[in-house]
C-alpha cells in the first residue's frame, strides 16, 4: 500500500513524514519521532495513556490515524519542559507526589495541559472531567487532582 505524505508540527518542530494507511498518531510519535514519553496502554481509547494534544485538544493518539491530522500542531509530554526548566505542571506532579509507577503520567499531564490552556482557573469538577479519560491504577487520583490544582494556582490562574 502506498505511503502518504504528511506534515506535522510536533512540540514546535516541523516534520515532513511518510506514513502508512494503518499508522496511528501514537505509532508515528513513538516509532518515527522516537518520542517514547507517550505510552500505549489499552489501544482502544479507554485508558488515556497515549493522550497528546492535537490543535489544542486532548485526544487519544491510539484512535487517530496520522494521515487524519496532516497539518496539525501536536504537543507530547516531551514538549512540556523548556530551557527554563520543568513546566509548572511537572513540578506540581513531583511536589504533590502524583506519580507512582509513572505509566499514566504523560497522558495525565497532556489532559491537564489541554485543560489549563483553555481554562486557567478550573474547578475541581472541571479537573475531574478533564482527567476522566485517564486511568491511574496507583495513586487513587487524589494527588493528581491536587497537583493540577496547584499548577493552576501557580501558573494558570
Amino acid at each position: 500500500m502506498a505511503k502518504l505524505d504528511v506534515e506535522l508540527k510536533v512540540n514546535g518542530e516541523d516534520y515532513k513524514l511518510q506514513v502508512g494507511s494503518q499508522e496511528r498518531l501514537l505509532d508515528t510519535i513513538r516509532e518515527q519521532l522516537k518520542l517514547t514519553g507517550t505510552k500505549e496502554g489499552c489501544s482502544v481509547g479507554e485508558c488515556g495513556a497515549c493522550t497528546v494534544i492535537v490543535d489544542d485538544q486532548a485526544v487519544n493518539s491510539c484512535m487517530v490515524l496520522t494521515a487524519q491530522v496532516d497539518g496539525s500542531k501536536i504537543i507530547t509530554v516531551e514538549g512540556l519542559e523548556s530551557k527554563s526548566g520543568l513546566h509548572p505542571l511537572q513540578k506540581a506532579f513531583i511536589e504533590k507526589q502524583a506519580v507512582q509507577c509513572g505509566f499514566c503520567t504523560p497522558g495525565m499531564l497532556m489532559s491537564a495541559l489541554a485543560l489549563l490552556n483553555t481554562n486557567p482557573e478550573p474547578s475541581k469538577e472541571e479537573i475531574k472531567t478533564a482527567l476522566e479519560g485517564n486511568l491511574c491504577r496507583c495513586t487513587g487520583y487524589q494527588q493528581i487532582i491536587d497537583a493540577v490544582e496547584m499548577a493552576a494556582e501557580e501558573w494558570g490562574g
Binding site: G45, G48, T51, Q57, A58, V59, N60, M63, V64, S111, A114, T129, A130, L131, E132, G133, N134
Partner: peptide, 9 residues
C-alpha cells in the same frame, strides 16, 4: 459520552 478525549474526536 466517553471521556474528554473521546468527545473531542
Amino acid at each position: 459520552i466517553g471521556s474528554t478525549q473521546i468527545r473531542n474526536r
